[in-house]
Design a protein around this nucleic acid. Structure first.
Lengths: 189, 189
DNA sequence: TTCCTTGTTGAGCATGTGCTCAATGTATGC
DNA sequence: GCATACATTGAGCACATGCTCAACAAGGAA
């Protein structure tokens, strides 16, 4: 019983964050969703810690939803490029922007974000290394290349989501494809 | 007299935002700094509007401080690349991140940010076009190139400032230099 | 049954913050 | 000097929100 309600609170917080982002979710919203009293949330958590944990859960769920596993590195890279600027990926990147922003002042959030950031970078680096091994492309320093690709993507995604400056999704996708092609020594269209 | 106090309030808000960022500045902080009563701020402004205007003023001041004018496009590009990841530019980019983040939900901030974003892009595009005219480098589509360079820079700056993932400033600067060299058909070091 | 432990509740507290509005000050025209 | 209009003040309001704590419930041991 004891872990039931605790887990329910964490799950409710993660659900709400996926639906509405982090900023607008209150403790009362979470307890209402979880069907428990206000006091129980504060019995099991401090709000800052719960929020950070729930954001990590929500982010992980969004990543799973947007970037499903694929058999080959080629296919994985394709999936990444295709989903990079699709509207269905917006919640993921909005959440990521919110998390990194909060991480600048919130140590709990910073901790939760650090693992996710390393995970994403490692995942892409591993795809790049894998493809290089199989001679699908060239990539001497996969971790550096992954960092550059993610930086370029993050910058463009910020532009697309904020409209500062306004950038078309298709245009952004083409910029990224070209960037990746140059990184990997693939023919540029 | 009337515009004196109004301007003093706006200036005080901009100063505080430059010192402490947007999120922690309160109406009471601003009136205390400006040496006026709380009521006067609300007489002249709504807080949301004042905050957006003050953020725009602060951003403009930061840009002037970090990226001074230079005579030639070569020199201007050099200055941009040198200051791109220097610690002295941190307040500028922190402010920019905060502004774009708020712009996602705050229409006033979005308006203020739009002009700044266009201005920055135009400024860089103009440098790129200028240099291409003088045969210093090649750049067929200056506005597109400026967008890509700024996107890559924004992404890297986010990594450097948040540490998600952790990136060395010098490393980031090298990544950007190399990218710009590729964009402009300059020899890569 | 009685008692104790553990889980649970939610009214209320403490704090923070944008904004109001009646009161007061100050300048200007007559 | 007087009156009118405008500038200015700040105590206090209205609301939001994380968290406390006295009270209650439920299950098991004696």
């Amino acid at each position: 019983m004891t872990t039931d309600r605790r887990a329910a609170i964490l799950a409710a917080a993660a659900d709400l964050i996926r639906e509405r982002g982090i900023a607008t979710v209150r403790t009362r919203d979470v307890t209402a969703r979880a069907g428990v009293g206000i006091g129980l949330l504060n019995h099991y958590f401090r709000w800052g810690e719960l929020r950070a944990q729930a954001a990590a859960v929500a982010l992980s769920a969004e990543i799973d939803r947007v970037v499903p596993d694929a058999p080959s590195p080629e296919r994985q890279l394709d999936l990444f490029l295709q989903s990079a600027f699709g509207a269905q990926a917006d919640p993921l990147w909005r959440l990521w922007i919110e998390i990194t922003d909060l991480a600048m002042t919130d140590p709990d959030m910073a901790q939760a974000a650090r693992e996710a950031a390393e995970g994403i970078r490692d995942a892409l680096a591993s795809i790049l290394a894998d493809g290089a091994d199989r001679q699908l492309w060239r990539c001497a320093a996969p971790r550096d290349a992954a960092l550059r690709i993610l930086a370029f993507h993050d910058g463009l995604v910020g532009f697309v989501l904020t409209g500062l400056p306004p950038v078309d999704r298709a245009e952004a996708a083409k910029h990224l494809e070209r960037f990746v092609a140059l990184e990997l020594g693939l023919p540029v269209s």
